[in-house]
Write a protein that binds this DNA or RNA. Structure first.
Lengths: 226, 226
DNA sequence: GTACGATGTTACCGAAATGTCACCCCGGCG
DNA sequence: CGCCGGGGTGACATTTCGGTAACATCGTAC
C-alpha cells in the first residue's frame, strides 16, 4: 500500500514517513505542489495526506488535481484554528482531516480507517460490480466463473482500472502506474498487456465486454452486472 | 499554458516570472501598456496578470483592450488600500485580483484556480449552455441528444471555443492551440477540422447553429439554449 | 544447466484520424 | 465579364492507432 505525504516541514515529513513505513506502508513524499503532482502521477499512490499550507500553492490544489483523476482517499492536514479550511477541504472532495499537532498513533488510526472505508485495506481484494481482484494472490474472480490467475503486471493494470471504474484512464497514466517512468511513451507495452489480459478475462477477446477501449483516450472498465 | 505578466517593477516581474515558470508555465512579460498590447497580440497568452499602475496608462486599459478580443482570465494586481480599484477592475471584466504584496504561493494558487474555472486546465469536463465536453473521454453531450465521440483534435478545438464562448476566437489562436506552432498559418487544416466537427455536432452542417463562422476573423460558439 | 512462464520486441493488418489537393460558391472590383 | 480571396466541400493520400501474432529475452524453480 503506497501513501503520498505532502508537507513543507521536513521534520514532520520524516516523522510521519517513519511512522507509516514502520507499519508496512510504502511512503512517497513531496514538499511542494508541483513535485506532489509529479509524484502522484509517477507513483499512483493509494492514499494521499496533504498539508494545506505549501510553498507554490496549497493542498487544495493538489486535492482537486487528484480528484480529477482518481477516487483515492485524501486526508488534509490543517493548523489549529483554521476551521474554515475544513469546510473547503471536504467540499473539494477530501475524505478526512487532521489538526496539527497530532500523534503518529492518531494518524495511523485515521489512515487505516480511511483505507478500510474505501475498500483498499491492505491485502484485501477490490471489488467492482461482478469483478473481484485479490491484490495479494493475484487472482481475479469474474462473476461465477472459475477464478483466473493473473501476472504482476496484469494485476497492476486491473488495479488502476478498477480504482477508476466507470472513468477513462489515459494511456500515459496507465503506463506510469504499471511500469513507472520507464515505460513512458511506449504504447506497445500497453497494447500487449491489454491483449494478454483480455484473453484471460474476456469471454470473447475480440469483443471486449469488460475492458473497453476508448479510442484516442485510453481504456475503461465499467460496473458490470453479474 | 502561456501567461502574460505586466508590471513596471522589474524585480517583481522577474520574481513572478521565475515562480510561474518553475511551475511549468510559459511566461511572457511586458512593462508598459503599449508593449503589453503588442505582446498580447503576438503571443496570444491564455491568461493575463496585469498591474494597475503602469507608466503610460493603467492595467485597466489593457484589460479593456483584451476584453474586446478575448475572454481569457485576467488577474489584476493592486497596491494595498486601493479598494475602489477593485470594483472597477471587476466591472471591466477582470476575473480576480491580488493585493500587493503577495506571496508567489498565493499567486500560483489563484492562477491555477482561474485556469480551472475557465476550463483551460487539463482534465475534467466543461459545460457551456447545453454543451458539455468531457476532456478525458473525448465525449460531447449536446442537450438531450445522444453523446458524440470526438477525436483529439476536435476536442481541443471545442475546448478553446467553449472556454471563450460568446467571443470570436481568431484563426491564428485556434491554430496554435490545436496544432501548436507547427500548424501556424495553415488555414486549410482549420477549415477541414471545423468541417468535420460540424458534421458531428450540427443538425444541419450547412447552416451551423452552434459553431458559427465570423468572416475575416475566426469562429465562435454562443451559449446555446437547451 | 534446463524448462517454463512472464515480459519485451518486432512486424504486419485494417480502421480511423489527419493532412493534402482540387474545385465549388459567392461577393467585391476593375 | 474575368479576376481575385475567403470560406466550404469532397476525394484522396498519408499517418497514426489499436489489435494480433510470432519471436526474443529474462528470471526463477527445478
Amino acid at each position: 500500500m503506497k501513501l503520498l505525504v505532502v508537507d513543507d516541514d521536513p521534520d514532520l515529513l520524516s516523522l510521519v514517513g517513519f511512522a507509516l513505513s514502520q507499519s508496512g506502508f510504502v511512503v512517497v513524499k513531496a514538499v511542494d505542489v508541483p513535485s506532489a503532482l509529479r509524484v502522484f502521477a509517477a507513483e499512483s499512490p493509494d492514499l494521499a495526506i496533504l498539508d494545506i499550507n505549501l510553498p507554490g500553492g496549497s493542498g487544495f490544489d493538489i486535492c482537486e488535481a487528484i480528484r480529477k483523476q482518481s477516487r483515492i482517499p485524501v486526508m488534509m492536514l490543517t493548523a489549529r484554528g483554521e476551521e474554515e479550511d475544513l469546510v473547503r477541504a471536504l467540499d473539494i472532495g477530501a475524505d478526512d482531516y487532521l489538526t496539527k499537532p497530532f500523534s503518529p498513533r492518531t494518524l495511523l488510526a485515521r489512515v487505516r480507517a480511511l483505507l478500510r472505508r474505501s475498500g483498499l485495506e491492505s491485502g484485501g481484494a477490490m471489488t467492482v460490480g461482478s469483478l473481484s481482484l485479490d491484490l495479494e494472490s493475484l487472482v481475479l474472480h469474474v462473476g461465477a466463473a472459475p477464478p483466473v490467475k493473473l501476472t504482476k503486471l496484469e494485476t497492476r493494470l486491473l488495479q488502476i482500472l478498477l480504482a477508476n471504474a466507470g472513468h477513462v484512464v489515459g494511456t500515459e497514466r496507465l503506463l506510469t502506474h504499471v511500469w513507472g517512468h520507464r515505460g513512458s511513451g511506449d504504447r506497445q507495452l500497453l497494447k500487449q498487456l491489454v491483449h494478454r489480459l483480455r484473453h484471460k478475462i474476456e469471454v470473447d477477446p475480440g469483443l471486449p465486454k469488460v475492458l473497453k477501449t476508448e479510442p484516442g483516450a485510453g481504456y475503461r472498465i465499467d460496473e458490470v452486472q453479474a
